[in-house]
Design a protein around this nucleic acid. Sequence first.
DNA 1: CGCGGCTTTGATGTTCATCAAGTAAAGTGG
DNA 2: CCACTTTACTTGATGAACATCAAAGCCGCG
Lengths: 231, 231
Amino acid sequence: MRIIQSKSACNTCTLKSLLFTKMSNEELQYVNGFRQEIEFEKGEIIIKANDPVKEFLYLKKGLVKLIKTDLQNKERIISIARPLDFVSLLSTFSDTNYGYSITALEKSVVCSIGLESMKDVIRKNGVFALELMQQISKSTNFVLQATYEIDNKQLRGRIAYILLWFAKKIYHKNSFNLPISRREIGELINMTTENVIRILSEFRKDGIIKIDGKNINIEKIDMLEKISKSG
Amino acid sequence: MRIIQSKSACNTCTLKSLLFTKMSNEELQYVNGFRQEIEFEKGEIIIKANDPVKEFLYLKKGLVKLIKTDLQNKERIISIARPLDFVSLLSTFSDTNYGYSITALEKSVVCSIGLESMKDVIRKNGVFALELMQQISKSTNFVLQATYEIDNKQLRGRIAYILLWFAKKIYHKNSFNLPISRREIGELINMTTENVIRILSEFRKDGIIKIDGKNINIEKIDMLEKISKSG
DNA sequence: CGCGGCTTTGATGTTCATCAAGTAAAGTGG
DNA sequence: CCACTTTACTTGATGAACATCAAAGCCGCG
C-alpha cells in the first residue's frame, strides 16, 4: 500500500464523467481536498470487514474483490469490481462499519474521499444525491440479481455463467487470464474448489474451452451460453 | 384493489416519523398532492415485474412479499415487508421497470407517491436525499445479508432461521399464524415444499415447535437458535 | 359434489460436498 | 540458488444432503 502524490485533481480527472458530472467545480475542488489516491499491490487488503466507514471509495485502476466471511469462517465473494465501480457503495451510506472486506486482485489504485465531505456535498446538492442513489441501486441490484441467478443454477451452469461474465464484462474477449484462483472461483459462485476444477476439465474435454493454467480460451461460446441458461 | 378516499395527509400522517422527518411541511404537502392510498386484498398483485416504475411505494398496513421469477419460471421470495418498509426501494431509483413483483399476503394498504414528485423533493432537499439513501442501503443490505446467511445453512438451519425471523421480526411473539403457505416458505428460503413440511414435522416430533395448520408455537426457542446458528 | 390447490409421508435417485492422495507451482529462508 | 514449506491444482472414491417422483388425504370453492 502506497499513497500516491497525485498531481491530478477531481475536476480534471478523466473518470469524473461517470458520476461527478452532477457536481459543480467548487464541489469537485472541495472533495478533492479530502481525497487520497492509494495504490495496492496484488493480494493487499484495502478494507477489512468491521472497519469503520470513513471514506467513499472508488476504483481508478485494477481489479478488486468484495468478500463476506460468515460465522463458520467460510468466505463468499460478493462481487468483483472494475475501475469506475464505486466499490464501497454497499456499506458507505448504511452502516457505520463495513460488512465485507475488499482485497486487490491485481495492482490497483483507489481514490478515497473523506466520507463527511461527500455527505456535505450530498446534503447541498440534491441532483448529485439523486444520481448517486441511482448508482447505489444499480450496484446492489446487480449483486442481488447475480446472486439469485447463480444459486439457481447447477454447477455446470455456474461455471459457464462465470466464464461468460469474465469474457463479456471484464475482458471483452474470449481469451483471458483468470484473475482469481480455482478456490476463489468457488467462493464467487458458491461451490467447492474440487468441483470448479472438475467441471473446467469437463469443459476442456468437451472442447468447449482450452485451459493453460490461468489462461482460458473459449472455443464454443454458444455451448457455454446454452449451459449457462439451462441451469 | 380499491383506492381509498383518504382524509389524512402526509404532514399529519403518524408514519411520516420514519423517513419524512427530513421533509419540510411544504414538501410534505407537495408530495401529498401526488399521493394515493390503495387497499389490496390478500393475494392481490400490487406490482408486476417489468411494470414501469412510476411511483414510490410504502406499506402503511398489512404484509406483502417481493418475488423474483427466473427464466425457468421458478419463483424466489426476495423479502417479506411490513408496514413502514419502503417496499419499492430496490427498483425505484435504479431501473425504469420493476425487477420483481409485489403481492399482498394479507389485506394491505399502500401509499403510492408519484415518482417524479419524489424526485423533485430529492433534487431540492439533499438532507432528505441522504436520509433516503441510507434507508435504501439498509434495505438492500438486509436482503443481501439474509440471502447469504440462508444459502449457507442446511435445510434444518433454514427452517429454524425463518421461524425465528417470523417470531422476532414480524410477530414479536412465539406463537403466530404463518402468513404464507409451505410452498412459499420454500420459495423464501430456497428449498422444496416437501422438505419444508418434512423438517417442520421433525421439529414437531422433537418437541421444538407445535403445529396446527398455519399456527406455529415455538416451544424451545433456544433449540431453534442453536439449529439456526450451527447451519 | 367434484376439482384443484395445499399438505403430508415414503421411496428413489442425483447432485454435490467431503475425504484422500498425489503432482505441480510458488514462496521463503539459509 | 537450492532445500524446504506452503499453497494451488488435479483426479478418484465415498457418502450425505437434498430434489424428485409417487400416492393419498384434506380443505375450500364454484
